[in-house]
């Protein structure tokens, strides 16, 4: 009996989906827009994440050593820095490398190069570029370095010439704030958009079922059980979700092809089209799943109102 009922519910839902063509079309249209907004959130998130991590990447602390600092001591400091949980990466730049970089940077500046030549020896010390996992963690690392510079000494003078954290502090603090608030702001915008579009979808389905409220009362009168009445409506809602989900996934193709190069140029290294293809299975499940869930739940709630005795 359960099998027969299930078959009848599916068939009835399908037939009604087809016969109420206009209503189905309108519901799918609204739902497609909702899913499009929800899906776009994934793209916005990916772009935001990539941009923010790029900004984070630009923030670092440099430790400059005195020219006489022995390499062993520098490596000792490097490994103790790497042992810190906040530190993501430490890059060692030797004196020679620092000089090469300096020369390269000033290759068009003859005056500076001449001055360097006249010095006769390499005036640059080695340095360490330290990257933290979170921008807020730089302060802690800077404090650690201050303590460390007191310890690592060479003939009672510190091997550390200077730590540029204090100079960069304002910039780092500002960036930390920007990163934090853009994440918060992004989340709020996303939440508002998602909630608004879900409410619109829900109301459309409620309206579609409102037109069937007399039908529901007739079904009750001939003695149909609540689940037997509800079944076809819920199935119809699921069909709206599936069709709208597929339409949305198809629409994302030209959308990302068009936006891909734009995002690549403006924001960061992320190409939305590559992201779409790369994460297709994830996006597929999220979009289709939200569609099915939204359709089924909206229909269930909408019919429930008319099934109350």
């Amino acid at each position: 009996m359960i099998g027969t009922n299930f078959k009848r519910i599916i068939k009835s839902g399908f037939v009604s989906f087809w016969r109420n063509g206009v209503v189905s079309f309108a519901s799918i249209l609204v739902m497609t827009m909702t899913l499009f907004v929800l899906g776009s959130i994934l793209f916005v998130n990916a772009t935001l994440d990539a941009s923010l991590s790029q900004i984070r990447d630009k923030v670092d602390i440099n430790v400059y050593f005195v020219t006489t600092a022995p390499e062993d001591d520098i490596f000792a400091l490097k490994s103790s820095l790497e042992a810190l949980p906040e530190v993501a990466d430490v890059e060692y730049v030797s004196r020679e490398k620092a000089l090469a970089e300096f020369t390269l940077r000033h290759q068009n500046d003859q005056l500076t190069l001449q001055a360097l030549e006249e010095l006769g020896e390499n005036p640059l010390g080695a340095n360490l570029n330290i990257k933290a996992k979170e921008t807020s963690q730089y302060e802690g690392i800077a404090t650690f370095l201050e303590d460390e510079s007191a310890l690592s000494t060479l003939d009672d003078t510190s091997i550390i010439d200077k730590v540029n954290y204090l100079q960069n502090k304002t910039a780092i603090d500002k960036l930390t704030k920007i990163v934090d608030s853009s994440e918060k702001f992004g989340f709020i915008i996303i939440a508002i958009l998602a909630i608004a579009s879900i409410i619109i979808s829900f109301n459309t389905i409620r309206l579609a079922i409102y037109t069937s409220k007399d039908e529901i009362s007739v079904m009750k009168l001939v003695g149909a059980s609540n689940s037997y009445i509800r079944g076809p409506f819920v199935f119809e809602g699921i069909m709206y979700g599936v069709v709208a989900g597929i339409v949305t996934l198809i629409l994302f193709y030209p959308f990302t092809v068009w936006l891909g190069p734009l995002t690549e140029n403006f924001f960061s290294d992320i190409n939305l089209f590559d992201y779409y293809i790369d994460k297709f299975s994830k996006i597929f499940f999220i979009v289709l799943g939200s569609g099915i869930l939204l359709g089924a739940v909206s229909s269930y709630i909408a019919v429930w109102r008319y099934l109350k005795k």
Binding site: T4, S217, V218, M219, V222, G223
Partner: peptide, 23 residues
Amino acid sequence: RLLPNKTAYENIAFAMEAAGKTD
């Protein structure tokens, strides 16, 4: 009070389905 989106046959069949009759 017929179901507008169902044919005469389906309207009657629906009452039988609701009563749990076989195909």
